[in-house]
């Protein structure tokens, strides 16, 4: 958590990153940037999914519909925050010549998406009358 707060400070202080180590090959930086953008698209897809649950399942009970939509929106928020955090960590590791950071997040996110998908199937099949 303290590490996270330290990273948050780096988000807003570009000079601090440039002080560390040497500039890596620009192709590595661009690859890191594309990964960051792919995570942002994942976040946007989750937000779009939240809207879709709200609008395209109108027969669902209010609580289920809003709960699922808010869950997907929260996942989108987490995903984009984590995207910028991971980008900063990778950028810094490359400047310092360290190993790239590993992350539990992809596994966690896929488990959450699997749970939401199963919940949605269950709710759509059995939740109409509820």
């Amino acid at each position: 958590m303290i590490e996270f707060v330290r990273n948050v400070r780096l988000w807003f202080a570009p000079e601090r990153i440039r002080e560390d180590g040497g500039t890596p090959d620009y192709r590595f930086s661009l690859a890191n940037e594309r990964t960051f953008l792919a995570w942002l698209r994942t976040a946007l897809a989750l937000i779009g999914g939240g809207f879709a649950v709200d609008q395209f399942l109108p027969d669902l009970r209010w609580g289920w519909r809003v709960g699922l939509a808010l869950g997907l929106l929260a996942a989108g928020v987490l995903c984009s925050l984590r995207a910028v955090n991971h980008w900063v960590r990778c950028e810094r590791a490359m400047r310092r010549g360290e190993d790239l950071p590993v992350s539990r997040f992809p596994a966690l996110l896929s488990i959450v998406i699997a749970i939401v998908a199963v919940a949605m199937v269950a709710v759509v099949l059995f939740g109409w009358e509820g």
């Binding site: 780096l10 988000w11 807003f12 202080a13 570009p14 990153i17 500039t23 620009y26 930086s29 661009l30 940037e33 960051f36 942002l40 984009s80 925050l81 995207a83 910028v84 980008w87 900063v88 950028e91």
Partner: peptide, 12 residues
Amino acid sequence: AALSPKHATAAA
């Protein structure tokens, strides 16, 4: 030039 943290943060 590499993406600056300010822009990355703004986008996120």
